[in-house]
């Protein structure tokens, strides 16, 4: 973007980077595919759906904030294990995680998503959008489920998912970066590694362009999450301060 040619990187280096990122992803993916298969994708029973729907709004918000925060902690570990991330200055590590960790959670959601039933793994079982009615954010929930479904349609391998997650995390256009060029180099290398792996996997079906379009969809989902949180806080200011996870408040509470 600033006229710099993309870094010349050898195939061996791209394979190594892909391996590192993929290894970190598998170590920090929170739910192994095997685990989920054992759970044979068990859906919520109707009475369980109704019990979520009858929760007070602030209780359901708190439960979801806890689940999101748990998932985000795995994303922090994912970032830490990728060569180069810990070499960034602390300011930029914080900036990238603050802006990108929820985006990576949304990307990872497709791993625990059952497209057949439009359900996602939540709180021990698979829940559909109707289980989240108590939040009062039906439009956002629908968009999040639609995003997960669209990601499933790409049939990415774990390695491809890992590389796309890293590409999104190392977004060099985040505000407040101090060493933007260094982040830009990391993002370019990750992009080259993703391109390399997609070619290796004979994914010529324009999947890289489709993934690029997903980047703006992720920004939109995160912006809408922030808007919904602000609207919720306007009504329940104390609940967030006293009952939400400290990390969630630190990331989204501004």
């Amino acid at each position: 973007s600033n006229g710099e040619t993309s870094p010349t990187v050898s195939m061996a280096e791209l394979d190594h980077l892909a391996h590192i990122i993929s290894k970190s992803h598998l170590e920090t993916c929170q739910h192994l595919r095997e685990e989920l298969q054992q759970m044979n994708w068990q859906n919520l029973l109707q009475d369980e759906v109704e019990s979520y729907q009858s929760k007070p709004r602030e209780v359901m918000w708190q439960l979801c904030a806890v689940k999101i925060t748990e998932a985000i902690q795995y994303v922090v570990e994912f970032a830490k294990r990728i060569d180069g991330f810990m070499d960034l200055c602390q300011n930029d590590q914080i900036v990238l995680l603050k802006a990108g960790s929820l985006e990576v959670v949304f990307i990872r959601m497709c791993r625990v998503f059952d497209s057949q039933n439009n359900t996602v793994y939540f709180d021990g079982k698979f829940a559909g959008p109707d289980a989240f009615k108590a939040l009062g954010c039906d439009d956002l929930i629908t968009s999040v489920f639609d995003f997960a479904k669209s990601m499933c349609l790409l049939h990415l391998t774990e390695e491809e998912l890992a590389l796309f997650s890293a590409f999104v995390l190392f977004s060099a256009d985040r505000s407040w970066l101090q060493e933007k060029l260094q982040v830009e180099k990391m993002q370019q290398r990750t992009h080259l590694a993703l391109q390399h792996i997609l070619q290796k996997n004979q994914r010529e079906d324009g999947v890289l362009n489709k993934l690029r379009c997903k980047v703006s969809a992720l920004r939109s989902l995160c912006n809408r999450h922030t808007e919904k949180l602000s609207a919720f806080r306007a009504i329940y200011p104390d609940v967030i301060r006293t009952h939400f996870p400290p990390l969630y408040k630190e990331l989204f509470g501004a």
Partner: peptide, 20 residues
């Protein structure tokens, strides 16, 4: 640092895959 105390802590401490 003050504003992102928890993120700083998470970045500092080493967590093994087992802990995760």
């Amino acid at each position: 640092k003050e504003k992102h105390k928890i993120l700083h802590q998470l970045l500092q401490n080493s967590t093994s895959p087992v802990d995760l």
